[in-house]
């Protein structure tokens, strides 16, 4: 199919030279049609976003066990949260995870994207690189769980083979989070690379040619041309991946389940555990709301810092 032609004019009523009466009728009909078009989505929004947001807010001020009606207890959940070391531990482990995950993933994805851009347009290469994204987190987690195993895992075989000490990747507190982060980098780096790659493709070739004529090295062109022109795409990718990264749950649910001790008890897993294994839906909601607020602040700051809305391409 052909790509749609581009029209930047804002949406407006489209009848030509309408009479006043006609215009009114058209507008009315259009408004009715619009509401009908939006209706299913609106129902979905109200039922599964708006209502849960309101009731979640309410639950966070209650003692709620799912069956008996929620009982209002004021800010008790929030005072508990402030003094709950496991909550802060969960925030810490989650942040540490996000930091490793995003840092590694962005650098690798950028590298892969640039390599692909400079070397090959091959669909096979692109297909291979994004392959892990197609399989579920659960699958990726289980495969690596095996490959990282202390005794049976190929990685420890290699480590032992070159004469180093085996590493309990999932059993050692300091290793557990980096290992989980690595697994998710593996799953997402190709996907992220393709996003960045698309952004690279949008950079006009002549900019590079001009750079090359000026005698710029690859590295210099990367720093002075690619990175600045890629900034809006990178910023968008970061917003999406960071938000996604905070959702880390699946990998932990099928591997460490929060352990060793509490080293991988990330916030989503802790909230899940609190609500669905210990029936404390009120406290779970309070933690979820706290996470929401923190994420909102974080996104705001991030957008400010990366100036996502300003492309140097103009």
């Amino acid at each position: 199919m052909t790509a749609p032609a581009i029209d930047r004019r804002p949406a407006r009523s489209s009848a030509r030279t309408p009479t006043k009466k006609n215009l009114f009728g058209l507008k009315r009909r259009e408004a009715i049609a619009a509401w009908l078009f939006v209706a299913p989505a609106l129902v979905g929004f109200i039922a599964f976003y708006l209502w849960p947001a309101i009731s979640g807010l309410y639950y966070s001020f209650t003692d709620f066990d799912l069956l008996t009606a929620p009982e209002f207890i004021g800010v008790a959940n929030y005072t508990r949260l402030l003094s709950d070391p496991l909550f802060w531990n969960a925030l810490g482990t989650t942040s540490w995870y996000v930091l490793i995950n995003i840092g590694l993933q962005t650098v690798l994805a950028l590298g892969i994207a640039v390599l692909m851009q400079r070397l090959t347009q091959s669909m096979v290469v692109r297909g291979v690189v994004m392959l892990p994204y197609l399989i579920a987190n659960v699958i990726a987690a289980l495969v690596w769980f095996y490959m990282f195993d202390f005794q049976f895992g190929i990685i420890n075989e290699i480590i032992a083979g070159i004469g180093l000490d085996r590493v309990a990747f999932f059993g050692e507190s300091e290793w557990a989070i980096p290992t989980v982060a690595f697994i998710n980098v593996w799953r997402h780096m190709g996907y992220t690379a393709l996003l960045i790659f698309a952004g690279l493709q949008a950079i006009p070739k002549d900019v590079y040619e001009a750079g090359a004529i000026d005698g710029g090295s690859e590295l210099r062109m990367f720093r002075s041309i690619t990175l600045p022109l890629l900034r809006p795409v990178l910023a968008m990718v970061l917003v999406v991946t960071v938000t996604g990264s905070f959702q880390i749950f699946d990998t932990i649910a099928v591997t460490t389940q929060g352990g060793p001790v509490n080293a991988t008890r990330v916030i989503n897993y802790y909230i899940f555990d609190m609500a669905f294994n210990r029936f404390d839906f009120g406290y779970g909601s309070a933690m979820a709301l706290a996470l929401f607020v923190l994420l909102a602040v974080f996104t705001f700051v991030q957008l400010r810092l990366t100036r996502a809305n300003k492309s140097d391409l103009g």
Partner: peptide, 13 residues
């Protein structure tokens, strides 16, 4: 070590 014991291979294996 507990780290090794809690990896994929159980006590029997």
């Amino acid at each position: 070590s507990y780290q090794a014991a809690s990896s994929g291979v159980g006590i029997k294996d």
